[in-house]
Each structure stands twice: as C-alpha cells, then as structure tokens.
Amino acid sequence: MSDGVQRRLSYRLRRALGPFLDRAMRTVTDETIRVFPSGYAATVHCDIDRLESVLSEHGFDWNPVSMYHYTRLGKQTNGSWVSRESPFADRQLHAVLVRQDAGRIDVYAHEEYNWRRHPLKHTRDAGIDRERGVERMRAVLDDLDVDDRRESYVRRKVGHLGQRARAGLARIADA
C-alpha cells in the first residue's frame, strides 16, 4: 500500500475516532488544542496533498495520535506532522496545517518534547517552544519546492474573514 493511500486510510480512521479520543484525553490533561498566532510559520500556496507529500519526502511523519488543533476562529486543522532526528529523540518539530482554501495552507509550528520518549511532559505541554519551532519550520519550508510566504497577522485575518463571507454568501445563494 502506498504512503498516500495508507495516510488517507489512517486519516479517515483518525477523523472518525478522533473526537472520542480527544474528549477522553481532555479528562486527564489540559493540553492546549488551539494554534497560537506566535506559532505561525508561513502560508504555503499549493494543494494540501502536494504539501503533505513534500513533507513526507523531507522526513516528516503524519501524526495520527495528535490532539486536534483549532484556530482562534474555530477552524479545525487538516494535518499534524512531526520531524525527529530519530524515533526516540528528545525533542520533535511539530507542524500543524490549516487548509484555508484549495491552494492556501497556513502552517503553524512548535518544538516540543517527543511524545514517544517523554509522554507525560508532552501531554502536559511542558517545554513548548513556538519561536524555535517557527524558526526550524521556516528553514524546512525554504528547502522545499513549495511557494511559501510570510503573511502578516492582519493580512491572514482579512483573508480568513473574506473566505468566511464568501462561504456565507454561497450558502445564502444555494438556499
């Protein structure tokens, strides 16, 4: 089975079971499940499948055990990817993808304890370093063959509001 097919199958399974797993986890932990503006690395302009494929080729692993993350506007993320020096490395780079539309993905990142080596520290969000994660993720994006831009917070929010307004108008037109 190809990586893409395997990822899509596990992605669908994670989407089906994820809400139940997340509710169970939140009963025992205070894990932050929203992305922070300080964790914004860049906006990538390509199809999300292409970005995921390029990340995979660059050594990132799709992370099906990650809690769902949400933006401040409540938009659910579309992918959680990690990069580690080895499976049980002390730290990992965690990239969170938020698909804004068919060709635009906001990438958020942070460096954190590897959940395989430090499950309690990871679960409790100990040692989260957004600044270092953003720095590392931007370096990764610079090495990839993707069109990425650093957009200001205001520009991204105006774009998000425009997207929501277009979706609302489309719903009204369909009614």
Rank of each mutant, 00 (worst) to 15 (best):
168 G>Y: 03
33 I>E: 14
1 M>Q: 02
58 H>P: 01
65 V>P: 02
21 L>H: 10
23 R>M: 07
72 R>K: 08
96 V>W: 08
35 V>I: 15
49 D>M: 10
52 E>R: 12
122 H>G: 07
17 L>V: 11
71 T>M: 01
125 D>P: 01
62 W>G: 07
51 L>V: 05
38 S>A: 13
83 S>Y: 12
78 N>I: 01
85 E>T: 06
26 R>T: 04
33 I>D: 13
121 K>R: 15
118 H>A: 11
174 D>W: 06
118 H>K: 04
14 R>L: 04
55 L>C: 08
81 W>D: 11
32 T>Q: 10
128 I>D: 06
12 R>D: 09
61 D>Q: 13
6 Q>A: 15
8 R>S: 14
94 H>E: 12
62 W>Y: 15
106 D>H: 08
116 R>E: 10
89 A>M: 10
2 S>T: 14
125 D>I: 02
174 D>I: 03
47 D>N: 11
29 T>R: 09
53 S>R: 08
100 Q>S: 06
37 P>A: 04
50 R>S: 02
163 Q>C: 06
159 G>P: 00
104 R>G: 01
89 A>E: 06
50 R>D: 07
138 R>M: 04
104 R>C: 09
147 D>G: 00
4 G>L: 13
113 Y>N: 09
108 Y>P: 03
124 R>P: 01
171 R>Y: 04
169 L>P: 06
127 G>M: 05
108 Y>S: 02
117 R>Y: 03
37 P>K: 00
10 S>H: 03
79 G>F: 10
51 L>P: 07
149 R>V: 13
160 H>S: 00
115 W>C: 05
114 N>F: 03
38 S>D: 14
13 L>S: 13
124 R>G: 00
49 D>G: 12
97 L>Y: 10
18 G>W: 09
13 L>E: 07
132 R>G: 01
1 M>T: 13
98 V>C: 05
108 Y>F: 15
145 D>L: 04
88 F>T: 11
56 S>P: 00
62 W>I: 07
58 H>D: 14
84 R>C: 11
7 R>L: 07
33 I>M: 15
133 G>R: 04
86 S>T: 15
45 H>A: 02
129 D>Q: 05
61 D>E: 15
158 V>G: 02
72 R>F: 04
24 A>W: 09
19 P>K: 07
126 A>T: 03
142 D>T: 09
108 Y>E: 06
36 F>A: 01
16 A>D: 02
171 R>K: 11
162 G>L: 12
78 N>D: 14
122 H>Y: 14
83 S>A: 13
31 E>F: 09
